[in-house]
Design a protein around this nucleic acid. Structure first.
Lengths: 253, 253
DNA sequence: CGGTTATTTGAAATACGTCAATTCAAGTGG
DNA sequence: CCACTTGAATTGACGTATTTCAAATAACCG
């Protein structure tokens, strides 16, 4: 379990194995795993990815990785978590989506279009520029990488629709239950009772459209009912059956 | 003003001029107007559109035009209004977006993917199949039509992000003000004080994530403050300055 | 006109937000 | 190892936004 956690929970790895970072073979792990989820990759494709990983950059938590209004600058997140969001003048914040290790961000719905969302590092993160990489993959439509990336975009799209329903039509309890289930699935640890969730309660509340205080109280109730426990960046699902019932919706991948 | 209303409010036209429907030169109006908003169209392109319009079909209000889970089946809405939505098991409904005369729907984020939203006619509507049309336009990237369609998708994307912020972080008052402004812009009658809004209060409430009753009360207050009046499918903006202030956000196109 | 659907209003319950303080956890520097 | 600091989690008390239930108009349609 420790292995699993440190695996997905990239931000921790980084700090633990800093000395061995440069030559770490696992640095490409999350990205490869995600890309090969939709079909096997060729040996050359895997090589491409490993090559890419060598050029990664490190950013501390809180860094703006991609600013709204800028032209698209596609990137992959190798480790750590990020959030796509918008902040209102008065400080209110809405998080549109979370970006997990191995996932991409910074591409618009169309090339050369201005993005309308800001991406912020929610933990320490590592990123690589994916522009050239994506451009090359785009040339060969049969490419496994290209297929994987398109599949990822589809998933993102589905998630956002679900997020809208959650924001507009679920109660706070349902929102939280649904959110935890979504994160469980995305973590890949589909059946594990525990998985990494390195998010602040304030961050979660800004995603779900609820006040931090209220979120905290809802969490307390879910904890008391032994449905979920969040502690130290790790989520533990107790009665996943009951949690699913409380979520009303079936969360997407 | 009557002309303007009947123009955009396609559903009304249809009924009024039923006898002259077949050869009506205005049937292609909304679609042409919207497509040429991003640059002039060639004479041949205009001809293509007119040709398309001849094959239009009529549907009564409430009809499901496109069902979630089905493979993409792109269509244009020539007249009337539709809504992209999802309904929960217990009857709760979330409307993702509205589709106005001249706009398209039924295409997924990728070709041959399953759509995850249902499109329902909110008034009587007229639609045409756009699959062949889009396929042809896609062949010629320089095509004015293709450019227009891509631009439309960008707008839709921007609208949905804004919709998320609205759902998650705005109060009911702000939601309504923001929504009215968005609709004003989309109606094309940007500076007119009055524009068609053929939506039920229940429909609007399902879009904004608010109960009908509460929406009604908010509308009453906005009416009393002379900010907006909704009556008989028409919206009248009184103090548009104050309305914008109440909306907090600047709505997208 | 009669029947149906939408809008409107009142009264009461509750979910949720705000304010303010306290506790807890995890450094950091001495 | 111990203050000391800082940010996050937690809790209480209170106010308000919003929902729900129920009923009364009002608008629409055949």
């Amino acid at each position: 379990m420790v292995e699993l956690v440190s695996d997905t929970y990239g931000a921790i790895i980084t700090r633990v194995s800093r000395s061995a970072a440069r030559e770490s073979p696992t640095a490409a792990g999350p990205l490869l795993r995600r890309l090969s989820r939709f079909g096997p990759l060729g040996a050359d494709e895997i090589e491409q990815v490993r090559d890419l990983v060598g050029r990664r950059k490190r950013w501390r938590s809180g860094t703006t990785l991609f600013a709204e209004g800028r032209p698209a600058a596609p990137q992959f997140l190798l480790s750590g978590w990020a959030g796509a969001q918008r902040v209102l003048r008065d400080g209110r914040r809405q998080i549109f989506d979370f970006i997990l290790p191995g996932e991409g961000f910074g591409y618009g719905p169309a090339v050369d279009s201005q993005a309308r969302q800001t991406v912020v590092a929610l933990t320490a993160v590592e990123t690589v520029d994916a522009a050239a990489f994506l451009g090359a993959a785009r040339e060969v439509p049969s490419n496994g990488l290209w297929r994987a990336i398109r599949a990822t975009e589809l998933e993102e799209d589905a998630r956002r629709l679900e997020h809208m329903v959650r924001l507009g039509r679920l109660t706070a309890h349902e929102k939280v239950a649904h959110f935890v289930l979504e994160m469980q699935r995305r973590s890949g640890a589909s059946e594990a009772s525990s998985f990494p969730l390195p998010l602040t309660q304030e961050t979660i509340s800004d995603a779900l459209g609820v006040s931090v205080v209220h979120l905290n109280r809802v969490l307390r109730q879910l904890r008391a009912a032994d449905l979920v426990k969040l502690r130290g960046g790790v989520a533990m699902v107790g009665d996943s059956k009951a949690l699913a019932a409380a979520a009303v919706l079936t969360p997407p991948a």
